[in-house]
Design a binder for these strands. Structure first.
Lengths: 122, 122
DNA sequence: CCGGTTATCAACCAGATGGTTGACAAGGTG
DNA sequence: CACCTTGTCAACCATCTGGTTGATAACCGG
């Protein structure tokens, strides 16, 4: 998997793991405590948590024999940061495109002097 | 896969597909045009685009024989929306926790009257 | 009409993923 | 100590994923 973003997105691609993240947002929880909400073995839940941990989305602070799972928000920020970056680029482009279209419309309406074969902009 | 979020996150979990999204943010592009940037067969690129399309991240507006690929930002918003929602919950919780700790510190310092066995708030 | 460009479909393959069961380690509590 | 709770490790299995190659479809230029 290598890069952090791939691991993070992959971790969030599973509904069970997203639900775990949602629950952990409201407070730390033990593995068994989490497992109570899902119809799968404790081992499966443990594996899901390992995936989240490897992605850096979660940490297990060992506290005596309890190993409460804790949500880490930094990687969440990494994801939204990436997405927002390119979302913004796309939107700036749309804005520019609209500007050009407006300009064309204004140039086109008054007079149509340039030789222009069938079908204007496309 | 079923739900939209799972498909979206899964689509973004691949570095090649994220790179495609990044490029498409700067403008629509054809399959071959995109494929030029990757060391893989055209078919593989086509499959990646299909994944993005199935996730709703991309659309193919058929325009004569050209089938330019176009980035759709709505699903990106869906993802950031989900993440930000729970990120906010976690942060509100941290804020509340800090408040409680501050309160405890102030109560604790002057006098320690309540019977309290080892390990206060869990 | 023939050939080139562009893109998809189909079959196949190796490796990752999500689940199972069984065994076991580590920490309190009777 | 014996035991129960909590959690992980290991092996196994079915399915999904990301890539390949080969064949085929759709469209345009000469």
């Amino acid at each position: 998997m290598a890069d952090a973003l791939s691991a993070a997105f992959a971790a969030m691609a599973d509904p069970t793991r997203r639900d775990m993240v949602a629950r952990l947002a409201d407070g730390d929880a033990g593995v068994t405590e989490l497992a109570a909400h899902y119809e799968m073995s404790l081992q499966a839940v443990s594996k899901h948590l390992r995936v989240l941990e490897d992605a850096g989305l979660v940490s297990r602070t060992r506290e005596a024999q309890r190993r409460p799972v804790h949500l880490e928000v930094e990687v969440l920020d990494l994801m939204t940061g990436w997405i927002e970056r390119y979302r913004r680029r796309a939107e700036e482009r749309f804005a520019r495109l609209d500007a050009v279209l407006d300009e064309l419309k204004q140039q086109d309406a008054p007079a149509r002097t340039r030789t222009r074969r069938a079908g204007g902009p496309r």
